[in-house]
Simulated assay, not measured.
Amino acid sequence: LLVIVSISHFRQLRTPTNLLLLSLAVCDCLVGLLVMPFQILLIEPCWLLSDLACVLYYFIPFITVSASVLNMVLISVDRYVAICDPLHYSTKFTQQTVKVCVLLCWICSIFYSFMTLLDNLKQPGRYKSCDGECVININGAVDLVISFVLPVSAIIILYVRVFVVAVSQARSMRSHVVAVKLQRSLTVTVQRSELKAARTLGVVVAVFLMCYCPSYGMSLSGDIKISPSTNLFVYFLVYFNSCLNPVIYAFFYPWFRKCVKLIVTLHILQPQSRLTKVM
């Protein structure tokens, strides 16, 4: 919520990259507000609500997980263009372009979730073996490929490319003479800023992969018996990723720490607080 308020309120933070972080923060917030509180209903031995409510409940986790994955892909593309093609970044990644991409991201997530759960909506409760169960059926192989294999492959390929270019730029900077013109000095400063942003978002993506891999790894395990406690822990790990993202922001983004201080001290209620310089 602090990330959402910070980027939404302070005009200086409304950059294309931060708009992607805003969309990711909305996913995190929805997990905390709508997904986690209802997990207790799935832990209980009996599902107390209707079969339709069971299917509808799964819509929110499916949408948030799909949106998180797509947002990670967009963030990776954003860093790839910023590092590998910096001269055209400002023209390719405008605020309007990013807003359209984020909108399409959420539309695709909602559509994919609807198509995935469509069979369960036609006849709610058809897959449960006894009363009091909340069970749905999805095509695990299709979900694994679309929700994990394809986007994660794209993320890894893009970040490997970013890493290679970043190392190349770092070596190039070291080889330059210290005394340079102001223009070149500004360019180096911008490049370092972009590299730092790439490193921070790289940590976000790495944590994302560590939290999501066990869940989708279970999909590849086939008929291997997995205890209910292990199953619960693995899915909790997916949701826990939403808690880790803001923590990473707090550690790596100075502007976020400054924004939190301004929000907690109610500075944002003052006139013209939107124009405060936080970067």
Rank of each mutant, 00 (worst) to 15 (best):
Q12T: 10
L13T: 05
L13E: 02
P16R: 04
N18V: 10
S23F: 02
V26T: 13
D28W: 02
D28R: 01
V31N: 04
G32T: 02
L34S: 08
M36C: 06
F38Y: 13
I60N: 12
P61F: 09
T64E: 02
S66M: 04
L70W: 13
D78V: 00
R79P: 03
L87W: 08
F93G: 06
T94N: 12
K99L: 15
K99D: 09
K99N: 14
L103Q: 01
L104R: 04
S109K: 06
S113F: 04
F114T: 12
L121H: 10
P124I: 14
R126C: 02
Y127P: 00
K128E: 07
C130M: 08
D131W: 05
V135Q: 01
N137D: 06
N139A: 11
I146S: 13
V149L: 14
V152Q: 09
I155W: 02
I156S: 08
I157L: 08
I157W: 03
Y159A: 06
F163S: 14
Q169C: 09
R174K: 14
V178D: 09
K181C: 11
K181W: 02
Q183G: 07
S185F: 07
V188W: 09
V188P: 00
Q191K: 13
L195K: 14
K196L: 00
A197P: 03
A197T: 15
G202C: 10
V203T: 10
V204P: 01
S215N: 11
S215G: 05
Y216E: 04
G217P: 02
G222H: 13
D223L: 13
N231M: 07
N231P: 00
F233P: 05
F236D: 13
L237G: 05
C243S: 10
C243I: 11
V247L: 15
V247C: 12
F251L: 12
F256K: 12
V260I: 03
I263W: 11
V264Y: 02
T265E: 12
T265F: 06
H267M: 01
I268H: 15
I268E: 08
I268R: 07
P271R: 08
Q272T: 01
R274V: 04
R274I: 00
T276K: 08
V278A: 04
M279R: 03
